[in-house]
Amino acid sequence: DDPVKEIYAAKAILKAVGCAEDGVNVVSCPTCGRTRIDLIGIAKEVEQRCMNIHGKKLKVAVMGCAVNGPGEAREADLGIAGGDGVGLIFRKGEIIKKVPQEQLVDELMSMIEHYEA
C-alpha cells in the first residue's frame, strides 16, 4: 500500500508492544459467524478517530459479538461489542451499557474522551 501507511503501522506496533508513551491502541477480533455488524468498517472508523488522541494511554477493543467480546477483551481499558441493531460498551470486560448500533462508535469516543484510569 501507500508507503505513508507504513508510518501508521510502525506507530501501531509501538503502541501494541507498550513502547509508545501515549495514544490509543485499537485491537479487534478477527470476526466469526457470530459477527452481526460491519466490524472491519467500525474498527477502521475507531482507529481513524483515535489517531490523534494524545495524553492518554489506552487499549480499546472493537469486538464483533456481545456473546464473547467483552470477556475476550477484558484486558482492554474500554471496548465495544456488536449485536443485532445494538451494541455493548464495556470497561475491563464489565458491561457498562447497551446502545443502539448507530450510536456505538460515538458513545465509545465519548467514553475515551472522558476516560480516567
Rank of each mutant, 00 (worst) to 15 (best):
A20T: 07
C50S: 14
P3Y: 08
D2A: 11
Y115K: 05
V62T: 06
H54E: 13
P3T: 04
A10Y: 14
K98W: 02
E107H: 02
A9T: 11
C50V: 11
R74P: 00
P30I: 08
M63A: 02
D84G: 02
V27S: 00
G41L: 10
L78V: 08
V99D: 02
G41R: 07
G69E: 03
L58W: 13
L104Q: 05
K97G: 03
R34D: 06
E94C: 10
E6W: 13
M51F: 14
A43H: 04
G71D: 01
V60N: 02
G64P: 01
G83R: 01
N68W: 03
V105S: 03
F90R: 00
M111V: 03
G93W: 01
G79T: 01
V60H: 02
E113L: 11
I53Y: 02
K97Q: 13
P3I: 09
G93L: 04
H114M: 12
R74G: 09
C19T: 06
H114R: 14
A81N: 09
A61T: 02
K92R: 14
I112Q: 01
R34M: 15
E75S: 15
E45G: 06
T35Y: 11
L104Y: 03
A20I: 06
G82M: 00
A43S: 15
R34I: 06
Q48E: 15
G41A: 09
A20G: 08
